[in-house]
């Protein structure tokens, strides 16, 4: 890169970098500092330095650990379901089925709805007494359930709603990947007598691996941060059956006003995400 190009590069990058520093780097550093203090929104200033106390308190808090476990189950469940469903739908849409553009348009609608609206709508649909889901089940002779009020069903119900909304994201990305695959290897495999399953196993999966990794990584990180749906649908209840880590941190920060411990909890979550992210990136590199 010559001198002039370097200068232009720096000039054009500066505004973006400045914005990133202001909205990303400064809050990040500030929240890291706050995590070592007993900062409360009830009082001005940082409060007293407490060292690692907020981190130790979080790790010995049974409700924080329970929310971490719930988050783990939720993330693994929704990401795997969305991936498998999304891949299946994307493969179907990649065939010469008639009207596939119409199906595609319909399938991506849920992705365009804000999670709060999705939550409110499903809360109405799943209302145990006045909701249409139980009404329809009743019409066909099945017993309706208290989908969001039964601690054994609530997490599964929230996961179903998350899958309903986000499977379209998987379809969108995977369909784009499938469309961009070269046709030559498939034609060669066909000439060699390869079955559709063999083509999928030995051509599609290896060639789509980077897309798989990207979509799994992005959805896993997004699922780990799930907050909106829980807030609208259950507020973590019944009991603590749907209390995920983001909702727990929200309670700590904005209900209990304990910003110090909420920041520590956020950074503990980051410590969990780092190995996952590194792992995904390494796998992606190997596949490439």
């Amino acid at each position: 890169m010559d001198k002039k190009r370097k200068k232009n590069f720096a000039t054009f990058m500066f505004p973006s970098l400045l914005v990133l520093v202001i909205v990303l780097a400064i809050p990040m550093v500030y929240s890291l500092v706050v995590s070592f203090f007993d900062t409360s929104l009830k009082h001005r200033g940082l409060g007293n330095f407490t060292g690692l106390q907020n981190y130790i308190a979080a790790l010995t808090d049974k409700y924080f650990m329970s929310s971490a476990a719930t988050t783990f189950v939720f993330t693994i469940g929704v990401v795997m379901l969305e991936f498998l469903l999304g891949l299946g739908i994307a493969l179907l849409l990649n065939t010469n089925v008639r009207g596939k553009n119409i199906y595609f348009s319909i399938i991506i609608i849920p992705m365009m709805i804000t999670p709060v609206a999705v939550g409110l709508t499903w809360r109405l649909l799943l209302h145990s007494e006045l909701g249409i889901v139980n009404y329809v089940l009743d019409l066909i002779g099945l017993t309706g359930k208290a989908w969001l009020a039964d601690s054994k069903l609530a997490l599964g119900t929230v996961m179903f709603i998350d899958v309903w909304q986000n499977v379209s994201y998987m379809v969108l990305v995977l369909q784009a990947g499938l469309v961009s695959l070269p046709m030559e290897p498939y034609e060669a495999a066909k000439v060699d007598g390869s079955s559709a399953l063999q083509s999928f196993r030995y051509l599609t999966i290896p060639m789509m691996a980077p897309a798989f990794m990207t979509v799994l990584l992005m959805r896993a990180i997004s699922a780990l941060k799930t907050y909106d749906l829980i807030y609208v649908l259950t507020k973590g209840g019944p009991g603590i059956s749907t209390e995920v880590i983001s909702y727990h941190i929200y309670q700590e920060a904005f209900r209990d006003l304990e910003l110090g411990s909420a920041s520590a909890m956020s950074y503990l979550l980051v410590l969990v995400i780092i190995p996952i992210a590194v792992c995904f990136v390494k796998i992606s590199k190997q596949k490439n």
């Binding site: 990584l217 941190i249 920060a253 904005f254 979550l269 995400i273």
Partner: peptide, 14 residues
């Protein structure tokens, strides 16, 4: 990516 997640968690879920 992880840092972005952390800052969004603290700053964004309210």
């Amino acid at each position: 990516i992880c840092s972005l997640t952390a800052s969004m968690l603290v700053a964004g879920c309210g």
